[in-house]
Structure formats: C-alpha cells, structure tokens
Write a protein that binds this DNA or RNA. Structure first.
Lengths: 209, 209
DNA sequence: GATGCTATTGGACTTTGGTCCAATAACCAT
DNA sequence: ATGGTTATTGGACCAAAGTCCAATAGCATC
C-alpha cells in the first residue's frame, strides 16, 4: 500500500488571479493543488490515482468546461467536478448537474460554500475509486476463468443444481463439480452466497431458464 | 392486474393560461392531465399509483416549487419533477437538480424540449414504481418471518454453514435446518442464490464474523 | 382451559455438494 | 516431440443440506 497522501485538487481557470486565490484557499484546507490555464493542459496529465477533484471554470478559451466534463466522462474517466462561472446561464448549470457535477457556483464564490463543495467532491471521488478498485479486482478474477468456467458460472449463481447444469450443457455432473470448484477457487469465494454477490458486482447475468 | 392506463401528468402553476396551454400540449401526447394553482392543492390529493410526473413552476404563491419538491421527498414520496420558471436563478436550478429534478426549463418553454422532459420523467417514474413494488413485496415477505427466522436469515446469506450458525446461536444444527426451510418457503426463494439476492434487495445485513 | 403460533429438538433417510486421487484427450507453443 | 493449459470423466468417500414424521414447551389470545 502506498502511503496515504492528501487529496489533490485540480483547478482549470484562465484567470491567473482566480487560480491564485482559489489555490491558496484550498491549500489552507490541507489539500494539494495543481492549476491549469486551459482544458487541454489538464487532459495531457496522466496517472491520477490519489483522491482528487476538479474545479472548473465554465467559460474557458478553446474547449469549454462543459466540453471537458463530457470529454472526461466519455473516456470513462469521471472525476467529481465543482464548476465556477462568471457568466453562466441556467441551461449551462442544468446541463452540468445532469452530467454529474457536484456543484455549480457563480463568481465571486463564497469561500465556505466553495470549500464545502470541494470536500464533498473529494469524498465522492474516494467512494468512486473504492468502488472502481473493487470492480477491477472482481473483473480480474473473472478474466482468469476458462471459457467453460465462464459458461458455468452464471448457471451456478442462478441457483441451478449441478445435475441440471450438466444436463443443460450435455455433460456429467462430475464435470460440473470440477468446474464449480475451480470457479470458487479462482473467484476467491468462500461460499455460494459469496459467489452470488461477486458475480453480481461483476455484472454476470443469471436469468433462469 | 389493473388495466394499463395512460400516464398522468400533474401541473402546478399559478398562471391559468400557462396551465391551459401546457395541459393541451400534454393531452395531445396521449397523457392525462390534472392541474393545480397551488402546491397545497396538489399535496391534498392522495392515491397516485399510475405512472406519473409533476410539472412544477418554481415561483408559486405560498409554498414554492422547491419547497414542494423537498416536502415530497421528505415524505419518501418522490415523483419525477420537470421544473419550469419565469424568473429563475442559477442557484435555484442547481438546487432543483441536486434534489433530483429531471429538467429545469425557462419560460417560454420549447414544446419539443418540454415534451421530451415529460416523457423522460414518466419513464423514470415507471422505473421507480417498479422498483418500489418489488421492494414492498420483498419486505412483506420479510415481515412474515418470526423473530428467530429474522435472526437466522442474515447468517444464512452470509454463507455460514448450519453447523456454524447453530453454534453461534447456541442451538442444534437440526433447529437451524428447520428455520432455514421455513425461511426459504416464506421468502419464496427456490435456491440459496435466490435468497441471497432477495435479502440483498430487502436490505439485510450480512457481515461475516 | 383450549387453541394456535413460535421455538426447539430427535430420528431416519435421500440428495447434493465438496474432496482426493487418477486418467484421457485436444490443443497450443516452444 | 514435450510440456502446459483446458476439458472431461471415474471412483471412493465425507460433509452438508433437505425431507419425512413426531414430540415437547412456552406464551398469548380467546
């Protein structure tokens, strides 16, 4: 395990004075800060494993804040966003919130309201990263299954008996037992109940015949 | 089963001409409509089992639209809401969206955009009602369990063996078997996998010792 | 006090699932 | 061709779970 670092807040705003004042405010909260003048600069960075969030100006030169939001989510790379804007409209704010923004604030922002939103966004990111890690772990285990095992798994978690599964697949009950044991081992499930939950989180279908 | 009726759209707006024109628009879409001049009138109605949604003016005399939204959700009675407003602000729209509004539109509303939002809201209500019905059904089954059975259930779905459960509760394995059989019967689960899913949907805890 | 529900346990027996050891065959890659 | 993975099956055996039938005891309600 990596040592627990303080969360990092990314600020994208074309106004240097805004960047400076927000950065100062955030640093006082004990967070790390990185600032960018344009959306593209932010996108060029890689590797963001620490808990983090994005403070984003809606009106940016070139790629707008809303564009960046969509770009990020289309990359399956969603980071909680706190929008700030000088000249926002209701449709803008509605669109931002629909796309999952944590908050949408008008300049000048109230410090307390802003910091509360940042804290909330960071917390949300923590949750999402935790979820994501768990999902990745489960999918990794699923990937270690052989084709046959992947075929048997959904039938097992659907509640079918070994005998029934064997019949459905035209095999012996004995064979199913072996597959089943391997599945339990590879998925690191220590009970059927466990396996059902793991399969569910991993997105395994299990409609009964 | 009740005959499938067309969805019903509730409109709350203090402007009679707005009520009339929106109502006409919605009726042409094949929905039923009920209009109200104030939030309180809407709240006084009961029994809303059909798929439905709420079209709500933010600026109402007396209880505002946002108040009504909060009031509804605090009653655990959430109906998808499409907000419309003549004099809205960004904070208003953000608050509404945070509280789960489907859409927040400024007057005069574009007919197509409005109708799309209404359709979406009705669809969301359908989903939620379906979910809710399923949950109610499961909770009803859970309610039919005796205290002992309710105690045994979480242990069963945690993956513990009858033997282990018996030891933990200071009973015989035999007794657990009986409870377990009754649980399966009352929950209408036809396999352990099924029971695990039912318990999960019903919100049963199952941390392992 | 009789009835009904809940909780508990026993015995006998069957079915199902899991374990250990072992074997065969197909296929792929070095 | 030899070794590794995958898929398949067998036998023996044990452990766990489910299924009958049956019994006792507490507790509340009528």
């Amino acid at each position: 395990m990596k040592k627990q670092e303080s969360p990092i807040v990314y600020i994208v705003d074309d106004d240097p004075s805004v960047r400076r004042s927000l950065a100062r405010l955030i640093r006082l909260e004990g967070f790390r800060v990185e600032t960018f003048a344009q959306a593209q600069d932010f996108l060029d960075e890689k590797e963001r494993t620490d808990p983090s969030c994005l403070v984003l100006d809606v009106n940016l030169p070139g790629r707008s804040g809303l564009d960046l939001q969509r770009e990020l989510s289309s990359r399956g790379y969603s980071m909680p966003i706190v929008f700030i804007t000088g000249y926002g409209t209701i449709p803008m704010s509605v669109q931002a919130m629909k796309d999952g923004a944590v908050e949408f604030l008008e300049k000048p922002v109230n410090d307390q309201v802003f910091l509360k939103a940042v804290h909330q966004a960071v917390e949300k990111d923590r949750q999402m990263k935790r979820q994501y890690m768990e999902l990745k772990e489960i999918q990794q285990r699923l990937a270690s299954l052989t084709p046959r095992e992947r075929e048997v798994l959904p039938l097992v978690v659907s509640g079918m008996l070994n005998k029934q599964i064997a019949f459905k697949l035209g095999m012996t009950e004995k064979t199913i037992k072996v597959h089943r044991a391997r599945i339990m081992e590879k998925m690191e499930a220590d009970s059927l109940a466990d396996l059902v939950r793991l399969a569910q989180k991993g997105g395994i279908d299990f409609q009964k015949s």
